[in-house]
């Protein structure tokens, strides 16, 4: 799995590529932790994410909570069908701002 970060002002985008499983999930946690302090908007771009496990979900929720605690915004975009199924199954699609591949940010 590879994570690339792009920042634009106070908005940060993490492009996550490959498998977000038990082994690689901690890397996402570290990437979120390493975000600049002033980050007010975090976007996870899952365009090239192939698989997410429950430990991956945990990191996504942790990132969401971190942003919520400092009144920032949090979105997951370009979510593919398989990963979207996981979000639907766990009900996260209703709690978090999660958009499938077709949707665009408002």
């Amino acid at each position: 799995m590879t994570i690339t970060m792009k920042t634009e002002g106070t908005a940060a985008t993490l492009h996550v590529e490959g498998w977000l499983d038990t082994q690689s999930s901690p890397d996402l946690g570290k990437a979120v932790k390493a975000l600049p302090e002033e980050t007010a908007a975090l976007i996870l771009d899952f365009k090239k994410l192939e698989y997410i496990s429950s430990s991956g979900l945990r990191e996504v929720v942790a990132a969401y909570k971190k942003m919520k605690d400092k009144n920032g915004t949090f979105s997951v975009i370009h979510v593919g069908n398989e990963v979207m199924d996981v979000f639907r199954l766990t009900g996260f699609d209703k709690k978090l701002d999660i958009r499938s591949a077709g949707e665009v940010i408002r």
């Binding site: 929720v61 766990t90 996260f92 709690k95």
Partner: peptide
């Protein structure tokens, strides 16, 4: 609470359609 829907066998095994909430431990007012 965010769990995989079980399968019901009534002639054939099919996953139960259900409306799931988020897993426990995350949102207090869920």
């Amino acid at each position: 609470a965010g769990h995989n829907p079980p399968y019901l066998c009534r002639g054939n095994f099919e996953a139960i359609r259900l409306e799931s909430g988020v897993p426990l431990g995350l949102f207090e007012d869920e």
